[in-house]
Design a protein around this nucleic acid. Structure first.
Lengths: 236, 236
DNA sequence: TGATCTTTTGTACGATAGTACAAATCACAT
DNA sequence: ATGTGATTTGTACTATCGTACAAAAGATCA
């Protein structure tokens, strides 16, 4: 086993392995796992189908490697931003900073891979919807710690809101985040062209603003008795 | 009297066609369109694969029929609830009623089909993530009118918020709604068992409460100048 | 009952899926 | 240059896919 110690680590060969990863990520994120064949991926990467088997053994293995590539850097980036957000003194500002620390890395590049943040997040959204087993496992064991850290940080800013409510609302946040990446065109369509659903900056700002307000909503248990709840029934 | 009404409408036999529809809806909603084979559906329905072809011609035709079954009733139900909600006098109560009118039918039965609401909504979520063409077409031409009606109703309750923001926030609402139906177990897990993500009533209440607050958030354009935005940067 | 229409069954076909594997090719240290 | 391990290619195998279609079975009514 001879490694390559001589030349610098920045080996600059037209790496087929990377091309396959990039093509797979793109195709999976758009069409889902099952709709994309190994041959589709190979063709998009300019590679031979057998090459995929050689590098990743199976199609599942390829997906797993995509996750391995992104989870670490994105988690790290989030931890950094979360740590910085926690240092914000003003409670209101801190809440917004924490939410932003959660949202931003999902849209922007979470690693050195070009524009990989949004694409990988969209991939996660699609895999989640498809109930992909490989994705489910690695996500649960990779992101749950981070999710708990964010939930705790938000709870610190909103001590009067029960943790259960925080969990629900952060779940809604992730759902909104995912959906914004999955069907951005719907925003453009419903706004009759006034908004661009594909604009990451707009999406982030809108999402942060809306989510902060959602987190600040009164807790369910105390909201109910304070004001009567409007009872709506359809006619008849 | 000789001619009895065409047995099509009134027939009450153990309908294989219905069994296939129900099985397909269930399987598609859980595993996605591409992961489920016609044979899987037939087996789950206790039918022969050829029977699926006979009743629905193609797999796409089967999906289309599922949508046709649900879209009408769910839209109708939403319209009824929206009309009732618009009659609420208090502006704050009306907003909540409108949101509830949008959310509730997605969780509960939208038609006479047993418990079909949540299942069909989950199906829509999964098809949306997979970018299914059949679903995309029928959804856009069936639900966009309703979506606009809700957006307008919400805008009426919040005249000071630009329509663009309303669109974004209602988009987030749908994303949160979808995600709650796709991975309810995540709520249970992150709350460490304190919340049940599968409980429709809890989901509705949490979602309505959070969303109403999100809609009531200040508009983006006016929020920015009023308070300084906390700028967060990770330590370099 | 027999005739006719609807529905279900069984089977088969062509296409494509994931993957295995041997041969060919490349990269590179010696 | 040459040998060696890493990579790429080409091909093939088996399984399963969606769908077609003829035959069997069931239902309906003169």
């Amino acid at each position: 086993m001879v490694r390559k110690p001589t030349s610098k680590e920045t080996t600059r060969k037209p790496n087929m392995r990377e091309a396959i990863l990039a093509a797979a990520e793109e195709l999976f994120a758009i069409n889902g796992f099952n709709a994309v064949s190994v041959r589709d991926i190979a063709q998009a990467a300019g590679a031979n189908p057998g090459s995929v088997t050689y590098h990743f053994k199976t199609k599942d293995g390829l997906l797993l490697e995509i996750y391995r590539r992104h989870c670490g850097p994105m988690n790290l980036r989030r931890s950094e931003l979360l740590a910085a957000a926690k240092r914000v003194r003003d409670l209101q500002d801190r809440l917004e900073a924490v939410v932003r620390a959660y949202v931003a890395p999902a849209f922007t590049s979470g690693s050195d891979l070009a524009g990989g943040g949004a694409r990988f997040t969209r991939l996660r959204a699609v895999m989640s919807a498809e109930g992909n087993e490989v994705a489910r496992k690695i996500i649960a064991q990779t992101f749950d710690d981070t999710s708990h850290a964010f939930i705790d940080a938000i709870h610190d800013s909103l001590p009067h809101v029960p943790r259960t409510d925080i969990v629900w609302r952060s779940h809604f946040l992730l759902g909104a985040l995912y959906y914004s990446l999955v069907t951005p065109d719907r925003v453009s369509r419903l706004s009759r062209g006034e908004a661009d659903g594909s604009d990451a900056a707009s999406a982030i700002e809108q999402l942060v603003q809306a989510t902060v307000a959602a987190f600040q909503a009164p807790a369910l248990d105390q909201a109910a008795p304070v004001r009567r709840r409007p009872v709506v029934s359809s006619k008849t």
